[in-house]
Simulated scan of single mutants.
Amino acid sequence: MEGKIYQNHTLEWEISTFIKIWVSVVVSLLYCHVASKFVPRGLTRLLTFIPVVCLFLVLPLHLHSMHLGGMSAFFIAWLANFKLLSLAFDKGPLSDPSLSLPQFVAIGCFPIKKSHPIPSPSISKKPRKSLWNYPTKILLIAVFIRIYDYSDHLNPKLIMVLYGFHIYFMLELILATVAALARSVLGLELEPQFNDPYLSTSLQDFWGRRWNIMVTRTLRPPVYDPALSVSTRVVGRKWAPLPAVFCTFVVSALMHELIFYYLGRKRPTWEMTWFFLLHGVSLPVEIAIKKVLNGRCQLPRVISTPMTLGYVLVTSFWLFFPEFFRVKSNVRAFEEYALVGAFLKDLLGGAVKSTNFNFNATIIQLPYVLS
């Protein structure tokens, strides 16, 4: 009984802290919105934003859950900070002068963008996903959670594959929820996140057009573009994208290490960094080979897709997925599912008990009222 009371208190404290943090985020973004109107772009505006950037790096340390903490860390420390760094130089989605105050705040901390009308009927819309898309993914997540109960009897590599799909499906569901709310309340659209990454034909296709598209676009103004400008003066325009791509992967590596520190509060092993550095070298090598071949000797999709996915999966098993298990993300996630389920059960049980009590009291008092 005492354990249940302690768990409920912990959950209530986490939710209370979560609300306070997001109130702080909204107030901070309001400050940045006003500052961007009066402070000239460049170093002066950047210095004006630095206190908020530092605050956004500290806020996730007050959360300890996998879901609320991990989601807040990604949205606040990563997305919001890099959008503010872009805004300091009038770049990125927050630099749009037509944004209303609510739209500025929403776009500042969530993976959404302002919707624009389609200029011509000739431009085809992206086909809508099947109505069964999200229910199917919810069902698969439930199946994965059930399979994890037998993880002691399964190959660890299989568990890693299932957990990879689990994370992918969870991200899509969370982002779809954010998109629905943003569209209905503010008329905003979700920034595209995934585009069938299992169909990638190259590392350039995987990282640039199919996986984590939103993060790629967020890192482009504050990281890739300045690195491209500098490297153009050093190595020339033809080869400038290669060091720019590598710099972007270095920043992404450091941000992933930070996110996992928020999740586990453990000293980094830098395996995650090596994963992104490896791909940060592999991708420029691939781009360089394409430039040299200039369209000659292209591999058919039936060969290039398995090669690409195989390389991503092998390196992920080696360097990426172990970090998830080191911070016990799967165990903690299931504990949070159970805690929330127990909390809702107690909450609904108390509501039903209260309703029954009032109903019974009414029945007892009814004869006296009728008399």
Score class of each variant (00 low, 15 high):
Y31S: 00
P119T: 10
S252T: 09
F49L: 13
E12P: 02
L348C: 09
F144R: 00
P119D: 06
V52Q: 02
K129H: 10
A180G: 11
A227C: 13
A88F: 07
Y134V: 02
L131Y: 12
L277V: 12
V352C: 12
F56K: 01
W22L: 06
E2H: 11
I259Q: 06
R217H: 14
K157N: 08
R220C: 00
L85T: 08
A179W: 01
L84T: 09
F194P: 01
L43I: 07
P93W: 14
L46N: 02
F56W: 07
T17F: 04
F56I: 06
F325M: 04
D225T: 10
L339A: 15
T308L: 14
N155Y: 08
E271F: 03
E2A: 13
Y311D: 00
V230W: 12
Y337R: 05
V230Q: 05
L59E: 10
W132P: 03
Y368V: 02
K353R: 14
I19S: 08
L99W: 03
E335K: 13
Y168D: 11
S36E: 03
R217T: 12
M160K: 13
G280M: 08
L87H: 04
Q7P: 03
A73N: 01
C54Y: 06
S16A: 13
Y224S: 03
H256A: 00
L344F: 14
P300R: 15
L339T: 15
L319E: 11
S124R: 12
R265I: 01
A77R: 01
K238S: 04
S120G: 00
N330P: 08
S282E: 12
F246N: 06
L313G: 00
M255W: 06
T305L: 10
K345L: 12
P40V: 00
V34P: 05
F320S: 05
Y224P: 03
N212H: 15
S130T: 11
V234Y: 04
Q103F: 04
L293Q: 04
P117C: 04
C32Y: 00
S202E: 08
F249I: 03
R45I: 04
N8A: 08
L79Y: 02
I112S: 02
C109W: 13
L11I: 11
T177S: 12
L68P: 14
P192V: 12
K137Q: 08
T232D: 07
A176P: 01
L55E: 03
L131M: 10
L59A: 09
Y262K: 02
P221L: 15
S130E: 10
L43W: 14
R210F: 04
K83N: 05
Y311F: 15
F56V: 06
E172I: 07
P102I: 13
V250K: 01
V245F: 05
R217N: 13
F317E: 01
Q298S: 14
A88M: 13
D225R: 06
L199W: 03
L293S: 09
R267H: 09
L277P: 01
Q298K: 15
P40I: 05
L263M: 11
G70I: 03
H33N: 09
I112C: 09
V143A: 10
V161A: 05
L43G: 05
V352K: 08
H62N: 13
